[in-house]
Amino acid sequence: MMVSAYPALLIRVGIPAILVLLLGGCGTTIDEGVVTPGALTERPATIRNEQLIGKWGVASYRDEKDRKRVEAQARAQCRLPYIIAKGPSDGVMMHLADDAKLYELRIKGGSDGKTYLGPEAPPGEWQDREILSVTDREMIMRFVDPEVHGRYGTFIYVRCPG
């Protein structure tokens, strides 16, 4: 009867947590395919690749109250910058969530008026980021997938000097 391995742990999770999990990305799973929330069509993007290319200090936050301080932290992270380079075709080289490989991602304007960044697929696809704002010195993005967004929060990129 006795087991040599550690006994399994029973973990009590509050009902809100279960709801969060159910409401997460899994609820809309489509096998191998693409989730197209709102079935957006693509429009010309107002943001150009050149605005993304370069070295960035990156930090993330979940609560608006942390934004100022996280912005300062992002700037301090330029000693370990995130580098965005031009891709071989018409995109930029960046990572997707939870994947250490670089992919060429494309800026896509959505029919909802938002700008997305992601692999070749209609805008707003589940692996996309939504670009919330871009200036000369800072850009803000978040993942479209609510589950991924929940884990990573909103990203602030602060352009590193030089």
Binding site: V58, Q73, H95, A100
Partner: peptide, 20 residues
């Protein structure tokens, strides 16, 4: 830590506290 960034380059270099 930097070793982790090297292995998981998609991570933010700083994450404000909170659930997640």
């Amino acid at each position: 830590p930097p070793e982790m960034i090297a292995r998981q380059p998609y991570l933010p270099r700083f994450m404000a506290g909170g659930p997640g």
